[in-house]
Every structure is written in C-alpha cells, then in structure tokens.
Nucleic acid binder design. Structure first.
Lengths: 220, 220
DNA sequence: TCAAAACCTGACCAAAGTGTCAACTTATTA
DNA sequence: TAATAAGTTGACACTTTGGTCAGGTTTTGA
C-alpha cells in the first residue's frame, strides 16, 4: 500500500511508461488554461477543471496539490510563446521586413492562441504575481536584447529615432488588443450598416502606419 | 414596523433628505469599484466591500439586492468616462492637434483613473456581459461619429489614408496599455541599469510615431 | 506471480462566502 | 409627539468550494 503519494511526482527513476501521468497532466492543464482564461483565478472552480479534463476532482489533486499550483503551471507554460515572435527582430534583417514579420507573427500567434493570450494578459494585469523571478528575468533579458537591435538600426540610419521600449509597447498592445478585445470591437466598433471592420487587415494596418512613421525613406 | 424594505429604493416621493441613502450608495460604489478592479467579479467579496465602505455587510444588502447588482451599477457608471477624450476629435480642428490632444487626454484620464480603467478593460475582456444594450449602442454611435471625422480629414487630404477604426484601436490599446500594464512594463521592460523607461513621454512617443505615419506633410 | 509503486475515487470536511431576517434605532412628517 | 418610514445590524441559514482521506484498482518490475 502506498502511503499518501502527497499529490506529487512519483520518484519514478527511469522514464518507465510516463504515459498515464503525462496524458493526465496535459489534459488537466489544457482544461485549466481554458477555464482560467474564461473565469479568472477566483472564478475558476477546480471541480469544473476536473470535469473538463474528464477526471474526478480527487484525481486532479493527485497530480496537483492546490489550485494555485495548477495556475502556476499554466502560466509557466505560457511564457514559452512570449519570445517566439520576438525572434523576428534580428539585426541582420532590414527593419522594414523584420517589424512587418514581427507584427504578423505576433498577430497570428495571438489569434491562434486567444485563450492563452488572454490568460497571459490577464495575469499580467493582475501584477504578474505568479510569474517566477526567473520568468520575469527572462522577459527582461529578451526585451533588452531586442531593444539593442532597434537602437542599432537607428544608429545605422535605417530607422528614425524612436524609443524602442515605447515602440514595443505600441506593437504589443496593438496586437494583443485584437485578441482581447475582438468581442468588444466587433460589438462596439461596428457600424450597424457596415457589417464590421476588416480584421484580416489588422496586421497590415498596424505595420503600414507604424512603418510609415519610422522609415526615413519616405513611404513604404 | 417596516416590513422588509426588500433592499430596494424607498418610495420616497419627494427628494426629502436623500442624503443618507445617497452617501451610503456612493460609499459602497466607490469601495466596490476599487475591489472589483483589484480582484475581479468572482474575487471580490462583499464582506470586503462592506468593510471598505464602513458599513456592516447586511447594510450593503439593504441598498443592493445582490453582488451582481452592485457590479452592474459600477460598470454603468464607468461608461461616462468613455467619450470624454473622444471629444477632442472634431472636424473643425487640425488632425495634428486633434489627435495629439486625444492621445494626451486619453492617457491622462487613464492614468488618473487607473482603477476604473482597469475594471472597464477587464469587463470588456470578459465580453462586456454586464453592459446594457443601451450602453453598447452608445459606444457604437460615438465611435461611428468619430470615424466620419477621420474620413473627412482623409478626404480633405489632411491625413494619409488609414482605416479609422484600426487607428482608434491602435490609439486606444496603446493608451490603455499604460494603465493596465504599467506594473508589468516597469518590471519586464526595464533594464536593470536603465532604471526605467520614461513614462512621462509616452504621450509624445505615441503621438509622434503615429502622426509621422499619417501626416502628408513630411515630419511633424 | 507477487509485492510494491502508481493511480483512482466516492465520500467527507472545514472554511468561506452569499444572502436573509427579526428586531432595533434613527429620521420624517403631520 | 405619535405614527410610520427609513436605516442599521448581529446572528444565522444555506451553498459553494478548496482540499483530504481511506481504501480501492491497475501497472510495473523482478
């Protein structure tokens, strides 16, 4: 008889058939992401997470010792998507292409992962309490690196002077917006006659407007 | 003996000394705004709202029949701030000044009313469930009106072609960002050496970048 | 095949939180 | 000043929900 697994990882030395554990945890995290995203931390009930992942509640607690631990695990996982889009910003590219790619990538990611994006944004609004020191540090490092790229471009005369951090804020907030606020936007910004604004051009609109203001060589 | 005031307005025909009622409701709403903003709907506990407004919990229920009713009342109140900044966008002004003023006004408002702003943004992320049909309609109408102003400017050659709705989204998201994400921004975007980016120039940075991309007459 | 580890789960708490109520005090008004 | 309405409140009922647990079943490995 096992004496209280303590809702923790088994000291399963080798990787002997990690299938059950892996699948269940994946299932729980997937359900949790969706529900935390819709309801927020306090609004989410673990009974609901359990049901959505097809496991009885007690089984969820077999893998996670608390609601907070589940939330933390979810958030941890989200960070991974953070820097993918940022990869497009690299010195060896022309700023025009790079920024355009960045915007497109960010928008695509955001759209394809609305749930995660929203949850991430929400967590950050709440003060990023659950982000580990390591994750915060990581975000800082990546950002700093990209700031330097922008500064290099400016120094090389490829870009008009602009505060790189403010630029990132503009780009990030604009792309994020389309995921977070699309429901509102659809409702509040639509004309009743004009059946809606064209979201498919969001990337282009942002790109063009920002780039027109940044490129020294006239219009794009 | 009064038989169950039913947590409702008294049929106080005249406006005979509405002071007590008015003050208490104001106090409750003020506390509720702050707590809903910090904790979200589910995270907020009415006991906390009661304490923050200096009233016993049961007294809160004397004025409001449910948590939802308090929330609804708070949200209703927030809409009022929505169009104030928008007033700056008027046809008889030069787009350059108008947009600059709009950005500045929006940023100022957002900064001065971080709590309300955050709550409003959050409610909208959640799908604006608690906004009345009337309020949604109002937002739509105001937006449509301002879209027409931008279109007029473009038609008059005062502005390069741009989708007005996308422009508003960019402006709104950028300004909103500074209220919602300032905690993150402070943490994630700061260099450890550079003690922080200059938030006081946010308005200018947004203005310059956007305007440089929109004005036909070269740089601002 | 058998023991130990891993996994599963119905039933159960204790805490927390929403909303209620009956009785009390204060204000209003005729 | 008396009657009635408005406001106040401690205590409590009821529900939800995070979390536990004892004992069960399945998987693993020797």
């Amino acid at each position: 008889m096992p004496k209280r697994p303590a809702a923790r990882a088994p000291k399963n030395g080798g990787d002997t058939d990690e299938k059950i554990r892996a699948r269940n945890i994946r299932e729980i995290l997937k359900a949790a992401t969706e529900i935390f995203s819709r309801k927020g931390f306090d609004g989410a009930r673990i009974a609901e997470i359990a049901e959505a992942s097809g496991l009885p509640k007690a089984n969820v607690y077999y893998y996670f010792s608390s609601k907070e631990e589940i939330y933390r695990a979810v958030i941890e996982h989200l960070i991974e998507g953070w820097d993918d889009a940022f990869a497009h910003i690299s010195v060896d590219r022309e700023p025009q292409d790079a920024i355009r790619s960045y915007i497109a990538a960010k928008l695509t990611y955001t759209r394809r992962n609305i749930i995660e994006s929203r949850l991430f944004a929400n967590e950050i609004i709440r003060g990023a309490q659950f982000l580990s020191r390591k994750d915060r540090q990581h975000m800082r490092t990546v950002t700093d690196e990209k700031v330097r790229v922008i500064e290099d471009w400016i120094a090389a005369g490829k870009l008009l002077p602009v505060d790189p951090r403010h630029l990132f804020i503009m780009l990030w907030s604009a792309t994020q917006f389309y995921a977070d606020f699309e429901p509102l936007a659809c409702d509040a910004l639509h004309t009743s006659k004009l059946k809606g604004i064209d979201y498919s051009h969001a990337a282009e609109t942002i790109s063009e407007t920002v780039l027109r203001g940044l490129l020294p060589t006239g219009r794009t």
